[in-house]
């Protein structure tokens, strides 16, 4: 990684989280014939929250304030480890299972913090979050494992590098994994159709209900970590789609970077569109939606297995295998 790339990464890392969530909000407003808030509204909100003083529950333990800081730092580490942009730091910890369990660690602590105040609302949110994440985890892991099988490594840097052989099978693996990851990330990020982040009723929400007791700088950290998580997830699935594209066409690096950023915006556009046109699913129908993500990831892994079968077998003994 050279100097310009590091600079690019830092700029995008600072700008995109704010920009994407502002973009989704603004676009949703436009789709509903409203003017909407400015693109940088999330930044203004964060600034406002950081200035405010905090009010916390008297039942809360010290964990309640440590967790936002801890989760935000885990998220910062993840943003460096996960190849969500076309630049790679080639750090040693960029590994499928480590990355996924770091995400799990964030979830662990946010559930604990939600239960800390003894608020029934945040407990609802926490219970739902626990259920949803248990159901989505297989989809996410299998999407990434499919890529891992295709390239025979669990190192994300190696998987998301371009030194790999090209083939039509690869395109389908990348596309299916990307789709699986995107659908799963809608659940992970508590977006529609699983959770509506804009209702006024905490009883029906997941993420917003969990953080109902947080305020001020404490809440700012949570919001910031959430925005970062959003771009990391979207960026990862955007990279999957981009790799499919790179298998088909030869693209020079600068265009590729621009297209990657565009892909993240397209996914954000899709999210806004889904949130404007779809309705929230009833709670008991959520597993069915998650099943789509799981199906995508299973298909991706099957494709990966067949691909390695083609790679390791000549046409002669392929018949014997089938």
């Amino acid at each position: 990684m050279n100097f310009t790339e590091i600079l690019c990464f830092i700029v995008l890392f600072l700008v995109l989280p704010i920009l994407i969530s502002g973009f989704i909000r603004n676009l949703k407003a436009r789709l509903q014939n409203r003017i909407g808030s400015p693109l940088l509204q999330p930044l203004y909100n964060l600034y406002k929250l950081l200035q405010k003083s905090e009010t916390i529950s008297q039942d809360a333990s010290p964990l309640f304030r440590i967790v936002p800081a801890l989760n935000f730092s885990i998220m910062l580490i993840l943003a460096v480890l996960v190849p969500w942009l076309p630049f790679h730091f080639s750090l040693p910890g960029s590994e499928i299972f480590l990355v996924l369990y770091l995400f799990a660690a964030m979830r662990f602590f946010s559930i604990i913090a939600a239960l800390d105040t003894g608020s029934p609302f945040s407990a609802f949110g926490a219970s739902r979050e626990a259920t949803l994440s248990a159901l989505t985890e297989p989809a996410i892991i299998l999407s990434l494992v499919a890529l891992g099988i295709a390239y025979r490594t669990s190192d994300l840097n190696e998987i998301f590098s371009f030194s790999q052989s090209h083939g039509l099978m690869q395109v389908s693996i990348w596309l299916l994994s990307g789709a699986g990851l995107f659908l799963a990330s809608l659940v992970e990020l508590s977006r529609m159709p699983i959770d509506d982040p804009t209702t006024h009723l905490e009883l029906t929400m997941v993420h917003e209900a969990m953080v109902i007791e947080n305020s001020g700088p404490n809440l700012a950290l949570i919001e910031l970590a959430y925005n970062l998580r959003l771009v990391v997830y979207y960026g990862l699935s955007a990279q999957c789609f981009m790799h499919a594209l790179a298998v088909l066409f030869t693209i020079d690096h600068a265009t590729y970077v621009l297209l990657s950023i565009l892909a993240i915006f397209i996914l954000a556009f899709l999210t806004a569109a889904i949130e404007s046109f779809a309705v929230k699913l009833a709670w008991r129908n959520n597993p069915e939606f998650i099943a789509y993500a799981l199906t995508m990831s299973l298909l991706a892994s099957l494709a990966a297995i067949f691909q390695s079968a083609f790679a390791s077998l000549s046409l002669g003994n392929l018949g014997a295998f089938l």
Partner: peptide
């Protein structure tokens, strides 16, 4: 910000 911390009951 710990000095500005206000304790209140859970909502």
């Amino acid at each position: 910000k710990r000095k500005q911390l206000k304790l209140s009951m859970t909502w």
